[in-house]
Design a protein around this nucleic acid. Structure first.
Length: 309
DNA sequence: CGTCGACCTTTAGGAAAGCA
DNA sequence: TGCTTTCCTAAAGGTCGACG
């Protein structure tokens, strides 16, 4: 563990102990090593948030935005566009594609690059081009799917590149464009939600989390990850209002285990959701961080095992 | 060098569970 | 009750090192 990590753990641990004094024991943490493993997962999740900040501070090669380059990285490209204050729609589109397809453990962003880069074509699938004619994109995908490597992220393993419903990438893109077109641009879409929410980033997250159900293949996980990343990268001020445990599997199992010491306890997702918000407030950790930490921790409650997928 | 088997990846399919 | 979605699941397909 790094020096900074230990300092951070020492900072959070007393807050966690204080929470337990106020709210009663966390039954998943009573066994020896469990508290340490849980705190380490929180620190690991915090690192993923800080990753965005540290990338922003460093220089970003413009090749990150080029799908024909080995350096292509949709998240770094989006951060670069925000930093340079340009191409807002394109940055959001890259966040969408990165969430839809995901980063493969070994192959990285190859599939995202092949699709976004139209398999090396000079005419890439920019947001403008897809927005102009979403049907054309679907037809292209259908025609070229045999030539595209299907190296998707762990969370996206049910995505199919071909076919129509319900797990097809083509449907996802088509319905996504329709969703954005309600307001015309991503900026107007997010601004409108923020306006409805009186500029409250958590209320705006909630509004968009609901309206995004219109996007095919984006269930709880896709919507949560997409909107959280839009907020993290700085494309809109959106912050998750809760861990959104309803409909979750891993994070929900983690919350059951944490509060009741049993992955299948009878406590409802709604109650656990509220408890996790309270815990997050007490230890000053955001909901996306806690959601991620709880999910990874429950896979191995007594040992810290970093997530690599 | 060939075989075995443990483990990892990929892929298609479908049952459980939430929601209207 | 029908519709939708699942950081599922199971089965098939691959990889790779141990061993004779």
């Amino acid at each position: 563990m790094r020096r900074g990590d230990i300092a951070l753990i020492n900072q959070i641990r007393p807050l966690l102990r204080h929470y337990i004094v106020d709210h009663g024991p966390l039954r998943g943490l009573v066994q020896g090593a469990h508290e340490d493993a849980f705190l380490e997962q929180i620190v690991e999740s915090l690192r993923r948030v800080k990753f965005v900040e540290s990338v922003r501070l460093r220089g970003i090669s413009s090749l990150r935005a080029n799908p024909h380059s080995d350096l292509f990285d949709p998240i770094r490209a989006a951060i670069m566009y925000v930093k340079e204050g340009r191409d807002h729609d394109e940055a959001c589109w890259l966040v969408f594609l990165s969430t839809l397809i995901g980063k493969h453990l070994h192959a990285g962003w190859v599939t995202t690059a092949q699709i976004y880069g139209a398999l090396g074509d000079r005419n890439i699938w920019s947001f403008q081009r897809v927005q102009n004619d979403p049907m054309l994109f679907r037809q292209w995908l259908e025609a070229h799917q045999a030539g595209i490597q299907r190296k998707v992220g762990n969370h996206r393993k049910y995505l199919s590149l071909s076919g129509t419903k319900p797990h097809a990438a083509g449907s996802a893109v088509e319905t996504y464009v329709t969703w954005v077109n309600e307001r015309g641009t991503h900026k107007d879409l997010f601004d409108h939600a923020l306006q409805q929410a009186n500029q409250n980033p958590m209320a705006a997250f909630e509004i968009l989390f609901e309206s995004m159900t219109a996007v095919d293949t984006f269930g709880r996980t896709g919507r949560f990850d997409y909107l959280t990343m839009i907020g993290k990268v700085g494309l809109a001020s959106l912050i998750p209002d809760s861990p959104h445990l309803i409909g979750a599997t891993g994070p929900l199992a983690g919350a059951h285990l944490l509060f009741d010491g049993d992955k299948k306890s009878r406590t409802s997702a709604t109650v656990l959701d509220r408890k996790l918000v309270e815990l997050g407030n007490a230890i000053q950790v955001r909901m996306d961080v806690l959601e991620d930490a709880v999910c990874n921790w429950q896979k191995n409650p007594s040992n810290f095992v970093p997530f690599r997928g």
